[in-house]
């Protein structure tokens, strides 16, 4: 086991495992916990998790690649995820996406050179009543227009 994972992380992992009748069922929650500490799940993390849950690393890899919220590479400090599904599109998600690309100077799927922002489009965030909307890390922002985006970006330091 690599020594660089925090004691707190190991403790939390043990707590989570205890909630399930079978160890491997804790895989997703453990991936969330580790990703929170390390920013992404690299092959090293896969091995660490596989060791803890008595799984083959390839099983962990399979799950890591299936779920979009589990990241294989670290992203910028703020991950801006814009909903590009129907209700948001109807109310102008397209304009919002173009504006963000222009403001951040990056394309969808890219990270700014200073590693501050990454930009993605995502499917429905379950906040269609606030369309168009986006998520920055785990925070939701709705009823977007250009001014609101300016304010949101300015507040992220």
């Amino acid at each position: 086991m690599s020594p660089e994972y925090s004691e707190l992380l190991r403790q939390r992992i043990a707590e989570v495992i205890a909630r399930y009748p079978k160890k491997e069922a804790a895989l997703l929650p453990v991936l969330h916990l580790v990703q929170r500490e390390t920013g992404s799940i690299s092959p090293e993390e896969e091995k660490f998790i596989a060791g803890i849950l008595d799984l083959k690393p390839i099983k962990v890899r399979e799950v890591v690649t299936f779920y979009t919220m589990i990241l294989r590479q670290p992203l910028g400090k703020y991950h801006v995820q814009v909903c590009s599904n129907l209700s948001c599109t109807l109310l102008g998600a397209g304009t919002i996406i173009d504006y963000l690309k222009e403001k951040l100077g990056i394309e969808i799927g890219q990270t700014t050179p200073d590693k501050k922002f990454s930009l993605s489009t995502v499917e429905c965030l379950g906040a269609c009543e606030q369309a168009p909307c986006l998520m920055v890390n785990f925070d939701y922002y709705g009823n977007l227009d250009k001014e609101r985006i300016d304010r949101i970006l300015a507040s992220l330091t």
Binding site: R19, H32, F66, Y67, T68, M69
Partner: peptide
Amino acid sequence: EVVVHRGAGA
């Protein structure tokens, strides 16, 4: 016992 289990975007 009730456990909250978080998905991961699928």
